[in-house]
Design a protein around this nucleic acid. Sequence first.
DNA 1: GATGAATGAGTATTCATTCAT
DNA 2: CATGAATGAATACTCATTCAT
Lengths: 210, 210, 210, 210
Amino acid sequence: MSPRTADQFEEIREEKKTLIMDVALEHFANEGYHATTISHIARRAGISKGLMYNYFESKEALLEAILQRSVIGIYRYFDLNKDGYLSEEEFEFFIRKISVVLHEKRSFWRLFFQLVMQKEVREKFSVLSSEPLKETEFFRGDEKFLSTISGMITDYFIRKKQIKGPSYDPLLDMNMFLITLKGYAITRIYIDDNDQDDDKTINHIIEIFK
Amino acid sequence: MSPRTADQFEEIREEKKTLIMDVALEHFANEGYHATTISHIARRAGISKGLMYNYFESKEALLEAILQRSVIGIYRYFDLNKDGYLSEEEFEFFIRKISVVLHEKRSFWRLFFQLVMQKEVREKFSVLSSEPLKETEFFRGDEKFLSTISGMITDYFIRKKQIKGPSYDPLLDMNMFLITLKGYAITRIYIDDNDQDDDKTINHIIEIFK
Amino acid sequence: MSPRTADQFEEIREEKKTLIMDVALEHFANEGYHATTISHIARRAGISKGLMYNYFESKEALLEAILQRSVIGIYRYFDLNKDGYLSEEEFEFFIRKISVVLHEKRSFWRLFFQLVMQKEVREKFSVLSSEPLKETEFFRGDEKFLSTISGMITDYFIRKKQIKGPSYDPLLDMNMFLITLKGYAITRIYIDDNDQDDDKTINHIIEIFK
Amino acid sequence: MSPRTADQFEEIREEKKTLIMDVALEHFANEGYHATTISHIARRAGISKGLMYNYFESKEALLEAILQRSVIGIYRYFDLNKDGYLSEEEFEFFIRKISVVLHEKRSFWRLFFQLVMQKEVREKFSVLSSEPLKETEFFRGDEKFLSTISGMITDYFIRKKQIKGPSYDPLLDMNMFLITLKGYAITRIYIDDNDQDDDKTINHIIEIFK
DNA sequence: GATGAATGAGTATTCATTCAT
DNA sequence: CATGAATGAATACTCATTCAT
C-alpha cells in the first residue's frame, strides 16, 4: 500500500483524459458537437460529470484538446517538420499515407469537416499563419499544419511544370488535385470497414497526379 | 376597410413562409442547424417567435420544408422526370448545370452536406427507394432524386465502356467521377463570389469524364 | 335586399353566441377548461378567433357566460322563484327533475364539478349570499341558486321531523340525502346514453328520503 | 471531505423526490394539474426547476409517480392481496378504512376525481384488467386495484341475497351503495379538518348496507 | 361583422457548469 | 481524485389576445 508516485498519478490522469477524449471524439464525430452532451460523454466513459471538469475546463476546451491531439498525431505521422519538400518519389507515399490516416483517424476527420463547415470556424482557418507552431494553440497549430502542407503541394506542382513543359497548367492541375483529395476524403471517412475498391482508386489518383 | 380575401391571406402566408425559410436556410447553412435558434431566425426575419409557429409546426418541420423546397427546385431545374437517360451531349450540360446549381443554391448544399454527415441522417439516405416521388415526403423525394441521378450516372459509365473498349474500367471511372464531383461540390459551395478559375476547372472535368 | 333590421342582427348575434357557447361547453366539460384552447373552440364552431372576441371579452368571460346561461336555465326549470317551499308531493317531482336535468345538462354538470374542485372556485362558493339574484353576476347567481335550494332542502328535512317523531335526526338524514344526491349526480353525468337501471335507482332514492 | 457514499446519494434522492411529490400533489389537487406550473412547484419546494428534471423526466412523469405512490400506499393499507373476500364483519372495517383513507389521502383523491373527470383518462379506466399487478405500471395497477375492489363488492352483495331473501335486489342495493360511497367520498375529501358529524354518517352508512 | 396574421408573456424542458461532501 | 445534486440561463414551443384590413 505504498502511496503512488507522482508519475503513477500522472499516468492515471493521462489514461482518463485519453479515455474521455476517445469517447467524446466518437460522439462529436457521429452525432455532432452540439448534439452531444457532457452527461452523455461522462456516462459512456464511465465517469462522473464532475470529473470531466477536473480534466477539461469546458466542453469547448475538450473539443480543442481533441483536435490538438489529432492534429499533432497526424503532424507527427507525416513527419512534416523536416524540410517541407515533396519529391516525386515521396508523392506516392504521401498519397498512401493520406489514405491510411483518413481511415484510421476517420472520427477526427468527420469532426473536422463538420467544424470546417461552420462559418465562424471557417473564417478562422482562412487566415493562414506563418508563426512557429505552439502545441497549446490548436487553431494556430492547425493553420501551420495546413499552410505547411499547402506550401509543399504548391511547390510540388510548380516543379512539375518544369517536367511537363509550357502547355502544362500547374494551378489547374493543383486545383484538380485538391478537389480530388477532398472528394476522396469525404468518401473515405464515411466507410467503416476498409473498402476493397480503395486500392484501385488510390493507385489511379497517384497515376494521375504524380 | 373591407376584410382581406382568402387570396390575400394566402399571399401573405406564402410571402412570410418564404421569408422565414430564406432566413432560416441562411443560418442553418452557416451556423449549423443545432446552433441556430428560433429566436435568432425570428429576429433576423423581423417577426415574432410565435408567428414562426403559425407557419411551421416545429424547428424540424421548418428544416424539412426548406429541404423539400430546395430538392423540388433542383429536381425541376434538372428536369429529371423525362427519361433518366444521359446522352454524351447531355453530359456536358449536366456538369455545367451542377456547377450552376451548386453555386446558386450553395446555402442548401452547405446544409445538405452538414446533415448528411450526421450519423442518423446518413442512415436514412442509405436506403434508396424506387417508389414514385411524392412531393410532400422529403426524404423519399430526396432518395428518389439521388437514386435517379445515381441510376443515370451508372448507366452513362456502363455505356462508355462500349466506346472505350475492354481495357476501360467503368466502375473505377465512375468512382473517380463521383469523388471529383464531391470534391468539386464542397470546394464550390464555400466560395461566395463566383470564382474566376471555375470555368477552367469545369471544362477540365468535362474533358476528363465525357 | 332590404337591409336587415336591428332585430334580425340581434337574432344572428344570439345564434352565433349560442353556437360558440355550445361548442365551448362541450370541450370545457370533456377536455377541461385549461386544456381547451380558444383556437380549438373557434375551429369547431366554424368561426374565426377574432369573432370569438367580438362576442366574448375573454376566455373567462366565455366560461362565465356559459355557467350563467346554464344556471339560469336550471333555475327556470325548477321555477325556484315562487316560494321556496318544498312540499312532500313536490319532493318526488323535485328528485325526478334533478335526474332529468343532470342528464340533459350533463356537460354543464361535468364542467361544474370540475370547477368546484378547484380551490379558488370552491372558496367563492363557500360564502353563500342572500342578496337578490343579478343575472349578470354568475357566481352571485349561482350562490343564490344554491342557497335557495339549500334552504328549501333544510326546511324540508326539518318539517319531516314533525312527522317522524323525536327519534328522527333531521341533520343526519339531510346529510345522507346530500351525499346520495352528489353520488347519484357524478354517476349519472358520466353516462352518455340514458341508463336503463336509472328509474329503479331514482324510485329507490325517492322512497328512502320522502 | 470524503465523498458521499452511494447510500447517502440515494437518501438525498429519495428525500428530494418525496418533497417534490408532496408539494406537487398539494398543488395538483388544489389548483389542478394544468393550472399548476413546474416553476410554482419548484419555488414552493425551495429548489430549482432544473432539479425537478433531475428526478422526474417530465411533468406527466411526476404526475404518474405521484399517482403510483398513492395507489400502492392505499393498496397496501387495504391489504387487498389476501383473498379478495369481504365477510360481513370485514365490511364494517372496510367502510371505516375507506373513511380514514379518504381523509388522510384527501389530496390524492381530489386529484384522482379531477383526473377521472377528464375524458381521455376516463376511457383508460374503463378497460379493467385482470393481469397481476406490476407496481411500475400505474394505470394497470390502478385498474387492478379498482377491479379487485369492484369484484369484492359485487361478491358481497350477491352473498347478501342469500340472507335477505328473494325480494332483495342485489344490483340495486349495490348501485345505491356505490352512489353513497361516491357521494360520501367527494363530500369527505373537501373537508380539511376532521368533521364532527362524520362518525354519525359513517355509522349510518354501515347500518344501511351491512 | 369577420378574418387570420401577428404578438409576447408564459411554460415545459435542456444542459453546461459549479460545488459540497 | 471523485461524485452527482444543484443551479440558472437558454431553448423550443403554446396560447390568449390584439388589430389591420
